[in-house]
Computed example of a mutant assay.
Amino acid sequence: MPETDREFAGSIPENYDRYLVPLIFESFAQDIAQRVAALSPRTVLETAAGSGVVTRALAPRLSPDASYVVTDLNQPMLDYAAMRQAADNRISWRKADALALPFEDAAFDLVCCQFGVMFFPDRQSGYREAKRVLKPGGHFLFNVWDRIEENVFANDVTNALAELFPGDPPRFLARTPHGYHDPALIQSELEKAGFSSVAIETRAGQSRAPSPRHPAVAYCQGTPLRNEIEARDADKLEAATNHAASRIANRHGNGEVAAKIQAHVIVAVA
């Protein structure tokens, strides 16, 4: 995985939260929060927290005496998440690498991670670390996107950029966010990391936006796809965004647009 696939800096965190979170992340964050709350954990670790959409959904559902540690490897994203979160003395914020967690063994009842493990350069290390910091019988709850063809706007944008850059198409979305979608592989890697029970559920939904430009900006300017576009031509970001918006409009109309999104939700027991 190129280093730029994990680079969320500059205006990306704000665009990510403004455009991408309501487009594809909000409903899955509510789902994760509901599942976590049903397990009634007292000590929770969130890894790869991004701009804090799960944190905002989960914090109100935890008990008053819970401890909630929110981490991300990317300091600009973590700073943005903390800025968006209401004051809460149960929450602590810490920059941390999910592959080398700075916590003691058996420190948490539950570890959660929304759409983050696809960015781990070594998933086995990430899974082993999650298991290490979990108490026996604790839960590791996370989700990953299904293949890009099941996530229509992401696929539309990828195809549009392939038209604009035919000799070297930007493939970030297919390669990383949608590149880890085989349930058998996920289960196998978790079992190799020592998890005793793995349940995987595929969950489909609808991605909605007020205009075709919204998903185009979300993906082209709110993810590391921006880095790929600008690496090919620093002056073409707006043209690339407009081309993606045009392709979405051609397929889905010029007003409010909607399309399928699909992900796998995984619960593993330590």
Rank of each mutant, 00 (worst) to 15 (best):
E3V: 11
E3T: 10
P22C: 13
Q30Y: 06
A33W: 11
A33R: 02
R35F: 05
V36A: 15
V36S: 14
V36G: 13
T43N: 12
T43D: 11
G52T: 05
A57R: 04
L58D: 07
V70N: 06
V70C: 01
Y80M: 04
A82V: 09
M83C: 04
A87Q: 14
R90L: 10
W93I: 07
L101Y: 05
P102I: 06
E104W: 00
A106N: 14
A107L: 02
G116Y: 14
G126L: 12
A130I: 03
K131M: 08
V133I: 08
P136S: 11
F142A: 00
W145Y: 10
D156M: 15
V157H: 06
T158G: 13
A160P: 15
L161T: 01
E163T: 02
E163L: 07
F165Q: 01
R171T: 12
H181Q: 06
Q187I: 13
E189W: 04
L190V: 11
K192E: 12
F195T: 02
I200T: 12
A209V: 09
P212I: 01
P212G: 02
R226N: 03
N227K: 02
N227D: 00
E228T: 00
E230I: 09
A231T: 02
D235C: 03
E238T: 13
A240T: 09
N242V: 05
A245F: 08
R247I: 02
A249C: 09
V257N: 06
I261V: 03
Q262Y: 01
V267W: 02
V269P: 07
